[in-house]
C-alpha cells in the first residue's frame, strides 16, 4: 500500500493528462475542447505540486521560534501559481475566439465549421 502510494499521484497525473489530451483532440465541440485543455493543464499542475510535498512537512510559512521543522518545497508551488495564471489567461482568450467563431459561423462544432469553410473557399 505504501509503495503504491509512493507513486500514486504520478498515475493520477498520467490518467488525467491522457484524458485531457484525448478530449482536446477527439471532441468536436470547441468549448468542450477548452474544458479538456484545462483538465490537461491541471494534470501538470498536480505533477508539480505533488513533488513539493515532503513526508512530515508543513506549509512553507515560517513558524517563528521553532527549530527542526520540515517545510514543504515552496518552489514548485510558485511555479504553479504562474502556470494557473497562464491557464486562465489562455482560457479567456480561447473562449473569446469561441464566441467570435459562433458569431461568424453560427456553430461551435469543428466539423461543421470545416464544412462551412470548404463551401466558402
Amino acid at each position: 500500500m505504501v509503495e503504491l502510494l509512493a507513486k500514486y499521484n504520478y498515475w493520477i497525473v498520467i490518467i488525467l493528462l491522457t484524458t485531457g489530451l484525448y478530449g482536446v483532440m477527439a471532441r468536436q465541440n470547441l468549448i468542450k475542447k477548452i474544458i479538456a485543455l484545462n483538465v490537461f493543464q491541471t494534470a501538470v499542475l498536480l505533477f508539480y505540486v505533488s513533488m513539493s510535498k515532503i513526508e512530515g512537512g508543513t506549509a512553507p510559512v515560517l513558524i517563528k521560534g521553532a527549530k527542526q521543522i520540515i517545510y514543504d518545497n515552496p518552489l514548485p508551488q510558485v511555479l504553479m501559481l504562474t502556470a494557473i495564471v497562464v491557464g486562465i489567461s489562455t482560457t479567456a482568450v480561447a473562449l473569446t475566439f469561441v464566441t467570435l467563431i459562433y458569431r461568424e459561423y453560427g456553430t461551435i462544432e469543428e466539423d461543421q465549421i470545416l464544412e462551412l469553410n470548404k463551401h466558402n473557399d
Binding site: L30, A94, F97, V98, L100, I101, E104, Y105, I113, N117
Partner: peptide
C-alpha cells in the same frame, strides 16, 4: 473568419 478558426 477563417482567421478565427486558425487562431483557435
Amino acid at each position: 473568419r477563417q482567421a478565427l478558426v486558425g487562431a483557435y
